[in-house]
Design a protein around this nucleic acid. Structure first.
Lengths: 298, 298
DNA sequence: TCACAGCCATCCAATTATGGATGACTTCAT
DNA sequence: ATGAAGTCATCCATAATTGGATGGCTGTGA
């Protein structure tokens, strides 16, 4: 006959909740689905298991007889879940996170330190770069991306948006004319292989005959140049607020409007196969909490 | 976490069939479906349950831990099916009993006949041998053992003890000297693979330079040799009393003291998961009643 | 008497799952 | 060395399932 085991689960839920609707809510199923599934189970069994009333559903005699087996299955299913939880309760192992260089340095690295203090059994490997790694192939477990993924196998767990702002050293800002425009600034930009990054492209779009005054492929070098007064760079505002004790400390935010579209987003992405791995979940939770604090600082 | 109960069913089928393809065939599912469903279960569990090989799939340690719960669910699901089919809680199905050869022949076989007369819907399979089968793996539902189990998952339902005595044919006994010693007897013993049985070892301990006069791996052959006057064999006294109408009828009990430790026990053992299965419980009740009559005859 | 809230059953567009085809791999027999 | 037979994983057209919308019913309170 081959009763579907999940149907027995639904059957038990209906009994415990006292109604098909209640069971549907508990199991996060549609009420039509619950109704149909129970009807199919009854068809397979050959007689009614519930007597439907407007107040709910009551077990028939046949349903009463099925109940002990369903309850025992539920007990063993719970054992299975506890078993699995015990086995995987302590997340451990390496989690590889891919992130753009600035994010890698300012957000992920300090976060890794924080996670490691609490969870020494977790190793974090940060892949700093801008290539879209193949999460499905295991090239990274998690990815922080500035573009929303459109691959159906990828899940966007969380995201944070931020205004993009212009930052310089105080000394550099002091020697600017009043109300400077974008073209009045010397720009610090990304060198190859990062030349195609969005900030570079936006500056090219906004400034006629745009030429970067300084370029580097190393984020830290760019920040050092900015602090040394070489020029200006575009950064997410939340990074400036967030990294109070980090490299961005001491940079001055210019009061220059980059336009309504000057908003950057950061997406926490993973492959759906990895989503429930305990070690990945642990790190995702930490990143989400950082996103929470980023949102509150903004 | 909410493991899908049907996924556990698939998991168990893979284990029992030894491959994803085999499980797919058994369950009349597509092999890609089976492959994906197991992958999804593993994703939810957070680690691999099977080690895939070209020869099939082998349980990992995590899979081993999940197995008992899945097996128990299967048993209760089967109960649910039987329940539904019969509309009454009439135990039915196959019960496999493992027992040492002599016990299998003298006790279990006649008992099986008795049970079948009253309960034709119960099938009994007797596994005659001395290996300690893995009850947890479902290799047998019940076990009659001469050693008390110490596995925490096994339950000793009942047990019976008996003095061990020496038996020969009357003709053989008639030609013995008065008050013969153990060394005066020709011994009928177990051949490989049963050579390590306890009676063999006890004789080796009691008789210097002990050599069996006759060995066989077949219990019936040993009894036939004994009746034919080849020599003596050690048997539990209750078996001789019990099997009044059986093969041991006609054997003569010698008045030889084997010592105070010459006591054998028989334990009725099952796995705690099977304990409350109606079919198993029915057979256990019958065996316990046989133990009762063995104790009274002693 | 009437409105409301809960229930269940049905319809059908949207979503998800399935499995045939396929490729890659390993093992075994010739 | 080679072909056959088994395994597993992936793709994607097709089939199956889901659940929002809806209607009908009952019980309850104003």
């Amino acid at each position: 006959m081959n009763l579907r085991w999940d149907d027995l689960k639904l059957f038990l839920a209906v009994h415990e909740q006292g109604s098909l609707s209640g069971a549907a809510r508990l199991l996060k199923l549609g009420q039509p689905t619950l109704s149909r599934r129970i009807a199919e189970l009854e068809a397979m069994v050959g007689e009614a298991l519930f007597e439907r009333q407007s107040q709910g559903a009551i077990l028939t005699a046949a349903g009463q007889k099925l109940l002990p087996a369903a309850q025992s299955m539920a007990e063993w299913a719970n054992e299975a879940e506890l078993n699995v939880k015990k086995q995987t309760y302590l997340p451990e192992g390496k989690v590889r996170i891919a992130a753009p260089p600035g994010i890698a340095y300012e957000v992920v690295a300090p976060l890794a330190a924080k996670i490691r203090r609490k969870h020494p059994q977790i190793q974090i490997e940060v892949l700093s770069g801008v290539e879209t790694l193949n999460l499905g192939r295991g090239e990274a477990d998690l990815s922080l991306r500035t573009q929303k993924p459109n691959d159906v196998d990828l899940v966007c767990i969380d995201d944070v948006s931020s205004a993009m702002r212009v930052y310089t050293s105080k000394a550099y800002a002091a020697q600017l004319p009043p109300h400077p425009g974008l073209a009045d600034l010397d720009w610090i930009c990304w060198a190859a292989p990062y030349a195609e990054l969005r900030t570079n492209q936006e500056l090219s779009a906004l400034i006629p005959n745009f030429k970067a005054a300084f370029t580097s492929d190393d984020y830290i070098v760019q920040v050092a140049a900015c602090k040394a007064g070489v020029g200006a760079m575009i950064l997410p505002q939340v990074l400036h607020h967030y990294a109070g004790l980090r490299e961005l400390h001491g940079l001055h935010e210019l009061d220059i409007d980059l336009g309504p579209d000057a908003v950057g987003s950061l997406y926490l992405v993973c492959h759906k196969r990895h989503r429930y791995l305990p070690k990945v979940q642990l790190v995702m939770d930490y990143i989400s909490r950082e996103f929470d604090s980023l949102r509150q600082d903004a």
